[in-house]
Amino acid sequence: MNIQRYKDYDSLSSAAAYWVWRQIKQKPGSLICFPSGESPTGMFKFLVQYAKAGKIDFSQAHFVGLDEWVGMDKNNEGSCSHYLHQHFFSKLKIAPAQVRFFDAKAADLDGECEKMNKHIQDLGGLDMMIVGIGMNGHIGLNEPGTDFNTYAHHSALAPVTIDVAKKYFTQQPQLTEGITLGLRHLAEARTPVLIASGAKKAGIIAQALNGPLTIDVPASIFQTLPNAQIFLDHGVAEKLNKE
């Protein structure tokens, strides 16, 4: 893994956007997984600016959403797909055929996971998979205890994940389960990317990158990924190599 440290969130976001720009320049038809949440917002801001300035062309690219709250879709403010539409896809009028999200309202969630796995396989695998990190070390909605060899799946949400998610909603949701790409997808992605910022996540980043490799900290899988690019700002990196 290649750990890159930046003085602030804006510098981190610019650097992460550059890696997406670089990927699209090298392969215009890339398949990229995007996450939702606070961490990638700055990256999307830069990517939208680049696209509107004609510096990057997403017209041939394909995208998948990392995860979703079970029972929600893009019409639910606070959902993962709503976030990605709001901050990226709708701003650039990305064609619906280029984007695939989990149908988290599907009656057969296992079948939906199989469809997502097949979609990724049919497009030749993920060229880039971008993720953040949860306060408990989760990646996407791969909660502590998730096997590193798991592909797309749905599972119960950890209490801390439910608590943190409240900030994304104006009305209190009933969150119990999530559907997500798996850690095996991350391991198989040609370029796995982790974005993290802020002192509040310094402890879990240190556990994930300096601590033991364990399913109790899903993000520790990055220790096994030689092609991984990890973007950290000063606050989140302050405890690295100090524990």
Rank of each mutant, 00 (worst) to 15 (best):
H138P: 09
P192R: 06
L225N: 11
L181V: 04
E77C: 08
G198W: 02
Q4D: 13
G140K: 00
M135Y: 15
I195S: 00
Q98R: 02
L126Y: 09
L47M: 07
M129V: 03
I195T: 05
L31N: 05
I205G: 07
E143H: 06
Q172Y: 13
K93A: 11
T150M: 09
H153P: 05
V131C: 07
V236Q: 03
L31V: 03
R5H: 08
Q229C: 09
C113Y: 06
L66A: 03
K166G: 11
P212K: 00
E177L: 12
H62Q: 10
A106M: 05
D147F: 05
K166S: 13
E77Q: 10
W19S: 11
H185P: 04
K201P: 02
N210K: 01
F101R: 02
F46T: 06
F34V: 03
P159F: 07
N76M: 11
Q98W: 02
W21T: 04
I133K: 00
P226L: 04
I205Q: 04
A187Q: 12
Q26G: 10
L92S: 02
K52H: 11
D73M: 00
Q172F: 11
E77H: 07
I56V: 15
I56D: 14
I94E: 01
L240I: 15
V217R: 00
F89A: 00
I24S: 01
N210E: 13
N149Y: 14
G235E: 10
E243S: 13
H85Q: 06
E38N: 14
T224F: 06
K115N: 07
D67A: 06
Y18N: 08
Q229D: 13
D216C: 09
Y6A: 07
C33T: 09
V193M: 06
D8M: 04
F88E: 00
E238L: 08
H87M: 13
G78H: 04
H87C: 09
L183M: 07
F231W: 10
L66E: 01
T150W: 12
D73K: 01
T214Y: 02
G178E: 04
S59M: 10
F46V: 11
I120L: 10
Q86G: 12
I130H: 07
F58D: 02
P40H: 06
G54V: 06
N136K: 01
T41S: 15
I230H: 13
E188I: 06
I120G: 05
F89T: 02
F88W: 12
